[in-house]
């Protein structure tokens, strides 16, 4: 067992437990975006930053990837942590201002104003969908491509993958909705649930959204227009 202090509360956890797990066990809320139980930790969104160490050696680390250490002193809501978290959220909001998940988080952290240019990116490169595809769906149909500012998520060569079973898991889990329904371009479609129905949902008048994870469904929006 490892003994550590979280917000000056002593706790002992098993070896290999992350700070995030220990803090949640004690009931300290730490917001996360790219962390999900059942998927490996990735540390992409940095929302779960906490402060460890003391004095001038204190530093910010992502709690979802940092294993608990003996005698560690963790602060989950110090002024420095809150400031950093707010900045991260503001930047995430700038890249995906239309994401409901990010909007809610930003609002909960008291962000009332957007200082950065909005990019409308549709993707924060959190890798949830990549991990979902690989670890839960055992498919590995999508992944990261390119690097730097050109980094993106998608299938190899931008064509429908042979491995993809159109499960829709990637879209279900996405906090920013990069893999938007592309029913109007079926060769690039990843979900295709609606396209596989007979008659396809865009052709049918009264179709309830039972196969569609999108809210609102883009295909349905097109149908309405």
């Amino acid at each position: 067992m490892i003994k550590l202090t979280i917000n000056s509360l002593d706790v002992s956890v098993e070896k290999g437990t992350t700070i995030l797990e220990a803090a949640r066990f004690l009931g300290f809320p730490i917001p996360t975006l790219c962390h999900m139980e059942g998927l490996s930790s990735y540390g992409a969104c940095r929302l779960c930053v906490v402060e460890i160490g003391e004095g001038p050696r204190a530093k910010l680390v992502s709690s979802c990837t940092y294993p608990a250490e003996e005698g560690m002193k963790v602060r989950t809501a110090s002024a420095r942590v809150l400031k950093a978290r707010k900045m991260i959220l503001e930047l995430l909001l700038a890249s995906c201002p239309q994401s409901k998940t990010i909007q809610d988080l930003a609002s909960a952290h008291g962000i009332r104003q957007q200082r950065f240019k909005q990019e409308y990116e549709d993707c924060i490169l959190c890798g949830l969908c990549v991990r979902m595809c690989q670890e839960q769906m055992m498919a590995k149909a999508i992944g990261f491509r390119n690097r730097g500012e050109k980094r993106s998520i998608g299938t190899p060569f931008d064509v429908k993958s042979d491995i993809c079973r159109l499960c829709g898991g990637c879209m279900y889990i996405c906090p920013a909705c990069q893999l938007r329904c592309t029913y109007n371009e079926p060769q690039k479609a990843i979900c295709g649930g609606c396209a596989n129905l007979t008659p396809p949902c865009v052709d049918k008048e009264q179709f309830d959204d039972m196969m569609c994870y999108m809210d609102p469904c883009v295909a349905c929006e097109i149908k309405k227009d």
Partner: peptide
Amino acid sequence: RSLVDIYGVATF
């Protein structure tokens, strides 16, 4: 190996 891994390396 999955094609997406290889494509990722090739584009990186």
